[in-house]
Amino acid sequence: MAPQDFSPAQMAAPSYPADVQPLVFQYVLQLADTSLILAHRLSEWCGHGPVLEQDLAMANIALDLLGEARSYYQYAAELEGRGRTEDDLAYLRSAVEYRNPLLVEQPNGDFAHTVLRQFLFDVFHYELLIELKAGPDAHLAAIAEKSLKEAAYHRKWSAEWIIRLGDGTAESRQRLEKAMRTLWRYAAELTTPTPLEQRLHAANLLPDYADIQAKVAAYVAHVLAEATLPVPTDAFAQPGGKAGRHSEHLGYLLAELQYMQRTYPNLTW
């Protein structure tokens, strides 16, 4: 197991008012679920990548996200204070309890589909981490600082692939356009605040998502222009994941992700 960089011993115990603490817990859990689910999706490519180099690249990104998810789960467990561990939170919750946005649970599809899913997430992830790093929660700021370098590389990787595929061959472009038609509807959920996020923003614990949305839109437009692709004008957006309303895909994903702990409770390596 990787070293636990942000173990409770190293960080001051969080001190939130009793009515705010559960909200922060829910939000940290949402961050954790998001990174874990996307890490799992990417790990499904392991051994199946189009070329060895990209197989490794996706596995690297998966491991970065998994490490980030662990840090969030550990902090969430501490915030909850009911004795649940990071493993309990990751392995023993059902699909409706998961709070990841719908985008990250979407199946891999072909490489263009995976790259676009990654790109839409990376752009948001990068901007969010910049805000969290400067935010009032020292624990989240420490996790964000470490993850930001990784996220910057993820964004570079996925943006370059968007450009290569969009401005590549007729086939690569057509595959990316197809992915766009499937995935674009899930992008808006990332930057659309839920009631939970609105309350945390009102308490000055979360940044204004409108600012993040503006930066995300500008960066996406810039990369798509280089890829010679139009920014989709279809405004239809499908939210739900952050409120626990998931697509059928998440159940299958969790069945595989949680199989070991469900079948052999408390199993350790």
Binding site: V51, L52, E53, Q54, L56, A57, N60, K156, W157
Partner: peptide, 20 residues
């Protein structure tokens, strides 16, 4: 060694394959 379409991709692939 590794395979890549151009120099930029080669540097990125090298980062992913050889500096993990």
């Amino acid at each position: 060694s590794l395979h890549a379409a151009d120099a930029a991709m080669a540097v990125q692939n090298a980062r992913d394959v050889y500096t993990r």
